[in-house]
Amino acid sequence: MTDLFSLRDLKVTFATKRGTLNAVRGVTLHVAEGECLGIVGESGSGKTVMWRAAMGLLRGKRVTRGGSVTLNGTELLTMTAKEVRQLWGTQIAMVFQDPMTALNPVRRIGSQFSEALIKRLGMSKDDAAARTLELLRLVRMPEPERLVRKYPHQLSGGMRQRVMIAMAIACNPKVLLADEPTTALDVTVQAQVLELLSDLREKLGMAMVIVTHDLGIVAGHSDRIAVLYAGEVVELATTAALFANTRMPYTEALLNSIPKLTDTSGTRMRAIPGSPPDPVSVTTGCFFAPRCNYATDRCRNEHPELVDGGDGHLYRCFFPLGKGK
């Protein structure tokens, strides 16, 4: 497998009134062809900012981007907005959390759908209309002929998200970034959408990145998982290894906090106390130390590096879990 999409030491900072906000603090990640990478982190961990910056969506006077982002060997960070736009759709596409605000509310589904096909692929109006129906069938929308006449507000959340997915894959992207694609959906519809994404990935041979706050969502659908905390990767491993042999205390705490159907009645939820560090203030030591059950003086004073446990399982902790197993 070759690396298709790479972030190397990506840093994103925002200039704010209170000072410099470190949203992403040096993230290195690679996505291989056809692979599914899960990115897991709490609100404010920098997961969304990271992908938006990598896609060239975040730019402006107050944003500073450092490091490197390459797609098929081409550097994206130095590209102008116009250049990077040429890659959207055909090389890299994105599915957003909120499909209502991502769709144009005053245009019918069919017309906003075929616009992308006409503009990007140079299709004729008729070809685009036919391809639209085909794509909507691919995402298992019932009655696509009627659907194209509708406006976004006439669809349910799950149907809108399917339309978004169909639009994202319309120009056969190499990489599909899905940012919290199911957070706004019911559990039953969530299960359908995740299954759809995985099926499409296999069928179209795309690489996929699923960004989520819920480890349960990526467990069954990703090949590898990166756990993000305070703008840093704190654990990166194959999905099986991450769950079977969790090294990072933060990952363990995240797993424990998920409410499970196997819990017994009256069990207390195992919440993570406190909240993530303020991204503006400068902290020494491990960023997770103030919330960590195992933290020592060393953790509070010295910042741990991301180390390889020997089997490609990376973690950022002085006292990793599961030692000696």
Partner: peptide, 24 residues
């Protein structure tokens, strides 16, 4: 039963479970 089986389980060993309930 369909609702119960749609709950995501944080255990990759269980693999991908088929969504029982289709449509809306």
């Amino acid at each position: 039963h369909a609702l119960v089986s749609a709950v995501p389980v944080p255990d990759p060993k269980l693999g991908r479970r088929k969504a029982i309930l289709q449509g809306e």
